[in-house]
Nucleic acid binder design. Structure first.
Length: 433
RNA sequence: GGAGGAGUGGUCGAGUGGUUUAAGGCACCGGUCUUGAAAACCGGCGUGGGCGCAAGCCCACCGUGAGUUCGAAUCUCACCUCCUCCGCCA
């Protein structure tokens, strides 16, 4: 959500900011509506003041035993115009809000210009892919050869873009999540949260999913939305609050399923479990003071990278260009993990600084101790990391071409009950599942 | 699902149609006093918006939304949330 006051004072800068998002100038239409609405408000308030004064007088006259009939007629005469202006004020306010809330966030200057993902900028690479290209295999082949990854059964019971895993792979998924949570809570200072997975309209609006991106979400018959990421409930924890600035940064993490309709992704990544309607993710959210969000963004990205370092997975970190940066973000780092089966890096985490964009929508504010004025908080979110894709990365990077098995990364061994390596199940065992 | 009760500012809490401009307490901030602190005393202290160069003036907001009325925190209706009891239930 944008601040109409900022647009009033900086119409050119605002139009330039939207131009970086490949959008036409918005300020003149917005300001025309804004001006008209304020004229309506001014007139309405004048009439309301008149009504209040006369009504009070009626009370006084009646108390004194006089006749107030004339005054009562006068107030009554104001009513039509008042109703008309109230209605106008309301509809104009609504359309102004709808317009404002449909515009993407203003990018930071250091977000590079570019039209799509091909123009993102690589910042660093960590780790070296070790598997020979000729030995690399796709996670789907590896998982199915293990006998623990079953797309057919998932399709039967649910449909496309679902997977069913069992035995060692099911446990590996749980181990990954457990390891990530323990690292973020134990080493990175995040507070673990178990949030609701269904949220209401207001919450989905707060983080920017509504009103524009409803089609990307699943909706229950009651009208709730299934969360596409834990960012939604975690960030909205501070909605409608005034937080003591001394209590920031607030750092939350959660392990949750994520549900996405993938409405615009028909035909994309249809093979394997790279793009599913449902996947697990460990999410990081920070609420900070405005002056702290830039440093927090670096820190959060570092926390996500640390997970991959500990898993000894090769990755690279990129900064998204203007054309690829999401609606609510001012700047986004993507972390891409090396997938030997695809012979390329693929996104496993996305860390965004949203500035005050979401806070404005949620009405989440900060106040310094002893001070009167409030400021909107800054919000950040990042995957720490996507569990499903981490599992893919482990399968493909730890694959042993000698026997078709998959070694268990050292940091996950404590979570795997002594298992050092996943080996293909016998046919009988895998069918039994 | 059934029957009751309740939602007021940062917090507690008064307020059942017109000097309410939402009392009062606590918390918080400033001051007096004190070697310092505490206590006591004095003062300040909700949010959003409009108009104005400014001082300031005005409007809206008492869970949300409609309604009644010249006038609504207060009356009516619907909804939401919480609490108590009953039923069902992992």
């Amino acid at each position: 959500m944008h601040d109409i006051k900022f647009i009033r004072e900086n119409p050119k800068a605002f139009d330039q900011a939207m131009a970086r998002r490949n959008m036409a100038g918005q300020s003149s239409a917005l300001l025309a509506l804004d001006e008209e609405r304020r004229a309506v408000q001014t007139e309405l308030q004048k009439i309301q003041a008149e009504r209040n004064a006369k009504s009070q007088k009626i009370g006084e006259v009646k108390k004194a035993g006089g006749d107030a009939a004339g005054l009562m007629d006068e107030v009554m005469a104001l009513k039509n115009r008042m109703t008309e202006l109230e209605e106008k004020d309301r509809t104009m306010g609504e359309s102004l809000n709808l317009h404002l809330s449909s515009l993407p966030n203003i990018l930071f200057d250091e977000t590079p210009d570019g039209k799509d993902e091909s123009q993102n900028v690589e910042l660093r690479r960590v780790g070296t892919p070790i598997l020979k290209k000729s030995d690399a295999k796709d996670h789907t082949d590896i998982g199915e050869a293990l006998g623990m990854m079953d797309f057919e059964t998932a399709a039967k019971i649910s449909g496309s873009r679902f997977v069913l895993m069992h035995s060692g792979l099911a446990r590996l998924e749980r181990a990954l999540a457990q390891f990530m949570l323990d690292t973020h809570t134990g080493e990175h200072g995040y507070t673990e949260v178990s949030p609701p997975l269904l949220v209401n309209d207001k919450t989905a609006y707060g983080t920017g999913q509504l009103p524009k991106f409803a089609e990307d979400l699943f909706r229950t018959t009651r009208g709730d939305w299934l969360i596409p990421t834990a960012e939604v409930p975690l960030t909205n924890m501070v909605a409608d609050m005034i937080i003591d600035q001394e209590d920031t940064p607030r750092r939350y993490c959660a392990f949750t399923p994520c549900f996405r309709s993938e409405a615009g992704a028909a035909g994309k990544d249809t093979r394997g479990m790279l793009r599913q309607h449902q996947f697990y993710k460990v999410e990081l959210v920070s609420i900070t003071a405005p002056e702290d969000s830039i440093a927090e963004h670096e820190r959060m990205t570092g926390c996500a990278e640390n997970i991959l370092k500990k898993l000894e997975l090769p990755f690279r970190t990129i900064v998204l260009c203007s054309g690829d940066t999401g609606f609510g973000a001012r700047k986004t780092y993507d972390i891409e993990v090396w997938l030997p089966g695809q012979d390329r890096y693929r996104e496993i985490s996305s860390c965004s600084n949203c500035g005050d964009f979401q806070a404005r929508r949620m009405n989440a504010r900060l106040r310094k101790k002893g001070e009167k004025e409030t400021r909107f908080a800054h919000t950040l979110n990042g995957s720490g990391v996507a569990v499903g894709r981490a599992l893919i990365a482990v399968l493909e990077n730890y694959y042993d071409p000698a026997d078709g098995g998959v070694r268990i990364p050292a940091v996950l061994k404590p979570y795997m009950g002594g298992v050092e390596k996943l080996m293909p199940l016998s046919l009988a065992t895998s069918r039994a599942a």
